[in-house]
């Protein structure tokens, strides 16, 4: 039996909003540690990895590990039926062919129950090496979203370069070009507004903006986003997931293959 209850059901709604347009179908791996998912987008250019730790749930029971394969747009449609303040409980029997979602409104006697069909998916898992990166940048997530959205008006790709204590995003296209330069901020009163840059070596790398704009759909999950870059390896865009108390619940990490000169 698998059962996971989340009082702040809005977190699950936000996670689905952040992945449903990138990945059609994926499997949740549920174990005593928590729920995780790894999936490539349909063109296999990017990879998304989600982790929700067991102790972040208000109730979590997983007698034996289960893989819940599902259509993410179906799951997302069902989650749209839950209110932002609802408690969400996921339930799956050990050998069932569906998952049950129960939504409970706060301070009300209303509960609703939905079922989503499960699928057997041939998931291909990729091993992600745990390597140090040349550049790590932490910045406000809404700023990253804005930059990606603005630069996509100019071109299809962004060139990210980092030197000393600044990071530069540049795009060019038929109409002209655009650059956004961000400098490291002094330790601010509001940590969520700060930009911090840690650089081992300068870097310049290009990425498709279409994917970065997909990743930015995770913005409501976290006030800060972390970018990690090294020469000729995929970019990592990470949003940590915290609950209203600020406790660490897990993360969404997106990996994007660079565009390479040949």
């Amino acid at each position: 039996m698998f059962e996971a209850k989340l009082i702040q059901g809005a977190i699950l709604k936000k996670i689905l909003d952040a992945i449903k347009d990138l990945v059609n179908e994926a499997s949740w791996d549920c174990s005593s540690q928590g729920m995780s998912l790894q999936a490539m987008d349909t063109s296999h250019v990017s990879l998304v990895a989600v982790q929700m730790k067991a102790d972040g749930f208000d109730k979590y029971r997983c007698d034996r590990s289960v893989t819940l394969g599902m259509n993410l747009s179906s799951l997302s449609k069902i989650l749209k039926c839950a209110g932002n303040d609802d408690t969400i409980t996921l339930k799956a029997p050990d050998d069932g062919d569906k998952i049950t979602l129960v939504f409970e409104a706060k301070n009300e006697s209303e509960t609703s129950e939905y079922e989503v069909k499960l699928m057997n998916l041939d998931s291909e898992y990729l091993g992600i090496p745990d390597t140090p990166y040349s550049v790590n940048v932490k910045m406000p997530s809404h700023k990253f979203q804005r930059i990606c959205r603005d630069l996509q008006q100019i071109g299809d790709a962004v060139t990210i370069s980092c030197a000393k204590d600044s990071i530069r995003f540049a795009a060019k296209g038929d109409l002209g070009s655009g650059t956004v330069n961000l400098c490291q901020t002094a330790s601010a009163d509001k940590p969520e507004d700060s930009v911090s840059i840690s650089m081992q070596e300068p870097i310049i790398q290009s990425f498709a903006l279409k994917y970065l704009n997909h990743f930015a759909k995770a913005t409501p999950l976290s006030p800060q986003v972390s970018l990690s870059l090294s020469p000729d390896v995929p970019l990592v865009v990470e949003y940590s997931i915290t609950d209203d108390d600020g406790s660490d619940f897990g993360y969404i990490r997106y990996y994007l293959a660079p565009k390479i000169d040949e």
Partner: peptide, 13 residues
Amino acid sequence: MSQKTIAHFFNAR
């Protein structure tokens, strides 16, 4: 510039 796939960098396990 050419777009690589993610599997070009991360091996299947």
